[in-house]
Design a protein around this nucleic acid. Structure first.
Length: 804
DNA sequence: GAGTTTGAAACT
DNA sequence: CAGTTTCAAACTC
């Protein structure tokens, strides 16, 4: 997608009116007002379903191999998102701001649990970043107008950006020690700087202000307002920092921008390929993990574009970045989401922080060359989720670029945390998609030293993994760093062993390829769309940034044979229910997630990790050709049975009632056997358990309804473990959730009146729960024809009524 | 740590 | 599409 013109999506976009109303008057706010998480979910699902199924899919719209065909852009056409992208691309000549708008909503998706790419890939998500975009731009027609009104005249800004790049290109080359980096000739810092320029544009400010306009106050809660506002502040301050060289003390609001820089700075210390993070960084990393991943991911994309296109011309690089816009809307969002997700799952607080970056530095982040992700894998990464990100990040070691010293100061500012938490709140919504996407796979491998990042596990990863992940996040950054150091010093064999152990524990996976050159799907890294890293024990590895072209061409080749070769293997069960309730209930659980293609086990009985289903912690399905299936997560024959579990909603209702009465009882063992498995996934934490509980609730068809009924159950654990920031984030979610759409959804259920009452009685619990609802958004198409949840609910309701 | 088993990926 | 080979992870000893 080098140019929008060549992009079918862009071509299909509808003309954008040049007479757009003022930003404050933009329908975008109406859109926000009317936007419910559910709606977003639906949009996402549609997209995912489209891209994930084996059904005929639209021909790849990408003209560049760097964009993963897996990333479905068909939704763009449908929703006219393309119009927005196209508009942005053509009129702003930049993706920066535009792309993030949608992110506001999506970024919030936190939670990707595992930190490993493997999991993520396996599980992960196929989160498309597109989803994020998609959500944000659902009302494409509105967005373009908004953008136009708010960003009109950005071309001038872009111009400045280009100039800035030109002026700094030389410096960059001098400081770069990485070949790839040198080729780029584009300094991350420059990009940041240029970004700042853009963001300082008055029109941009106006645009942001629009979010806080009086008119939108009733829609956007305090949290939401903070973001846009803080975003402005970030930009201004950041710009000031850059222009003024260094600033000793920076307001916390700048964190989003400074984090990326900080990360890069830290990274430059380990050019040896080691993923070990400087302790300094590690200390501060707690606040930046999500950001870092996110940034790198983005950076990778940007770098790729640059590298691919014209390394000698900074402007060209910028152009390339811009070229990503059409997709990037989703892309960026996805990237952000993913990283955030992983992080989020680990630590809500961190999530908030990381999320804040989305709006400000995501795209602006430095662009280390050769970052872990394959360009092509970006789409996939998104799909995969944070894990990929994580892995990728790990690669930064040798390619990261020097960063201004002032970044350190920024990091040290304690205010950043608080501010970021607030600022990031708004974005927490965005992660939904990612999580969903993750429905896919979950084997994550966290290459990232900071284990908490674990994402991906996220997989498209199965939500299961995601749910588990939070625990991992509790590992201290220092611990991770230490372990990474250790790992890097190991012999290949030891690495392998260690890696294996890590995998078992849910950490990162690394390959040990000997003959595939890490250019075949045998290679876990390659299959995950990430570059091999120092901790890999592979031999004759070509899956490295320096062989990017080879990697990409190989990927293309493989994808030509099998377009879904790099797609998450684990998909979530989705329903076709018109009722939004279904969406909420689409948690990846043993019964809801399945291996897309199914396993073919003959001897392992699907009881060992040889079995991909088992490995992904999902049950076998009818699509499996396994013999003697005894998959503890669900055997083939149980697949249908699991489906029937949804019909147990009425039972859950009873449970909910018990909860309301103060009963500690949460679920009936018989109603949800799968939960036991889920719990076994990770020894962890309250959060996990809470999530599991939630998941179990959701598992049932009436999940959403029940959930609302028993927010109390979840609330203590979720909120308690997450800390104050969680609340902040939740607040935003809650506000979002309390829209009419949600009510409508509830009305569809038999106990609408009760739900409402419950909500009002325990708003907090609801808030906590809402976050999960969003995460539960299904990202994959149904593997088999399922009875719609709505119909199930109806049946349940009918049965329940009859019983009473 | 070496060797075996296993099943996905790749190949024919 | 089926059968075979290759491969690397998972597993066992």
């Amino acid at each position: 997608m080098d140019s929008p013109e060549g992009n079918p999506v862009a071509a299909s976009s509808s003309p954008i009116s040049s007479d757009s109303p003022p930003v404050q008057e933009s329908p975008f706010f109406n859109y926000l007002r009317n936007l419910s998480p559910i709606k977003s979910v639906k949009a996402v699902r549609y997209t995912q379903r489209f891209s994930e199924t084996n059904l005929p899919t639209p021909p790849p719209v990408f003209t560049s191999p760097r964009i993963d065909p897996q990333r479905d852009t068909s939704f763009l056409e449908r929703d006219n998102v393309a119009a927005a992208d196209s508009f942005v691309h053509e009129n702003f000549n930049t993706q920066l701001n535009v792309v993030h708008i949608p992110s506001f909503e999506k970024e919030g998706q936190l939670c990707s649990p595992s930190g490993c790419i493997d999991e993520y890939l396996v599980d992960p998500m196929e989160v498309d970043s597109t989803n994020s975009t998609h959500l944000g731009l659902q009302s494409a027609g509105e967005v373009p107008q908004l953008l136009q009104g708010g960003y009109a005249g950005l071309k001038g800004t872009i111009k400045r950006v280009d100039d800035a790049v030109d002026s700094n290109r030389e410096d960059r080359a001098l400081t770069s020690c990485d070949p790839a980096e040198k080729n780029m000739n584009l300094s991350p810092l420059k990009l940041v700087e240029s970004s700042v320029d853009l963001r300082n544009d008055e029109r941009f400010d106006d645009f942001l202000k629009g979010f806080t306009s009086e008119k939108s106050k009733d829609i956007v809660d305090a949290d939401m307002k903070l973001d846009p506002v803080s975003g402005v502040q970030h930009c201004e301050r950041h710009a000031a920092q850059i222009e003024g060289a260094q600033q000793d003390e920076v307001d916390g609001t700048c964190q989003s921008l400074h984090e990326p820089l900080q990360i890069n700075e830290a990274c430059e210390d380990f050019d040896d390929g080691s993923r070990t993070l400087p302790k300094e960084f590690v200390k501060g990393a707690n606040n930046c993990r999500g950001t870092r991943r996110h940034l790198h991911f983005e950076a990778t994309l940007a770098c790729k574009s640059i590298a691919t296109g014209n390394t000698a011309n900074p402007k060209a690089s910028i152009t390339n970045l811009k070229s990503l816009a059409p997709i990037s809307s989703s892309w960026d969002a996805a990237g952000c989401t993913l990283s955030i997700t992983s992080q989020a799952s680990c630590c809500p607080l961190e999530v908030d922080r990381s999320t804040q970056n989305i709006g400000n530095s995501e795209i602006l982040s430095p662009l280390p060359s050769g970052i872990g992700l394959h360009v092509n894998s970006i789409g996939r990464s998104m799909l995969s989720g944070s894990d990929v990100f994580t892995s990728k990040n790990s690669n930064l070691s040798s390619q990261d670029k020097p960063v201004p010293e002032w970044s350190n100061d920024l990091v040290k500012d304690p205010n950043n945390i608080a501010n970021s938490a607030i600022a990031g709140t708004m974005f927490s919504h965005a992660d939904l998609d990612q999580q969903e996407s993750q429905a896919g796979v979950a084997t994550s491998s966290t290459s990232y030293p900071i284990k908490s990042l674990n994402p991906p596990s996220d997989s498209p990863l199965t939500q299961i993994e995601l749910q588990v992940a939070p625990c991992e996040g509790r590992v201290s950054a220092q611990q991770n760093a230490d372990s990474i150091d250790e790992l890097n010093q190991m012999s290949p064999k030891r690495k392998r062993k260690s890696t294996a152990n890590k995998s078992e524990s849910g950490d990162c996976k690394h390959c040990n390829c000997k003959r595939s050159k890490c250019l075949k799907l045998y290679c876990e890294c390659f299959a995950a769309g990430i570059y091999c890293v120092g901790s890999c024990a592979c031999e004759t590895c070509f899956n490295k940034p320096e062989y990017e072209d080879l990697v990409l061409s190989t990927r293309e080749q493989i994808e030509s044979r099998n377009p879904l070769a790099f797609a998450p293997k684990i998909v979530k069960q989705t329903t076709e229910s018109p009722a939004n309730v279904t969406e909420e209930g689409n948690w990846t659980t043993p019964s809801s997630a399945r291996h897309k293609r199914g396993c073919n086990c003959k001897k392992s009985k699907c009881l060992k990790k040889y079995c991909e289903c088992y490995q992904a912690k999902v049950g076998c399905s009818d699509g499996c050709r396994c013999d003697g299936c005894q998959n503890s997560f669900g055997i083939k024959s149980d697949y249908r049975r699991a489906e029937r579990c949804d019909n147990l909603s009425h039972e859950k209702l009873h449970i909910a009632e018990s909860e309301e009465n103060g009963s500690s009882k949460q679920f009936s063992p018989t109603s949800w056997e799968g939960i036991a498995h889920i719990r076994n996934l990770d020894p962890c934490s309250e959060v996990s358990q809470a999530q599991l509980q939630l998941g179990s609730n959701i598992q049932s068809s009436a999940a959403s309804l029940h959930w609302r009924y028993s927010p109390v159950t979840l609330t203590p654990k979720l909120c308690g473990s997450n800390g104050p920031h969680e609340l902040t984030s939740d607040s935003a979610l809650c506000n979002m959730m309390e829209d009419n759409d949600m009510r409508e959804i509830l009305k569809d259920t038999t106990n609408t009146h009760r739900a409402e009452g419950q909500r009002s009685s325990s708003p907090r619990g609801l808030r906590c729960g809402r976050k999960f609802i969003l995460q539960a958004v299904p990202s994959f198409p149904p593997l088999t024809p399922y009875k719609t949840v709505s119909s199930k609910l109806k049946n349940d309701h009918t049965d329940s009524t009859a019983n009473h």
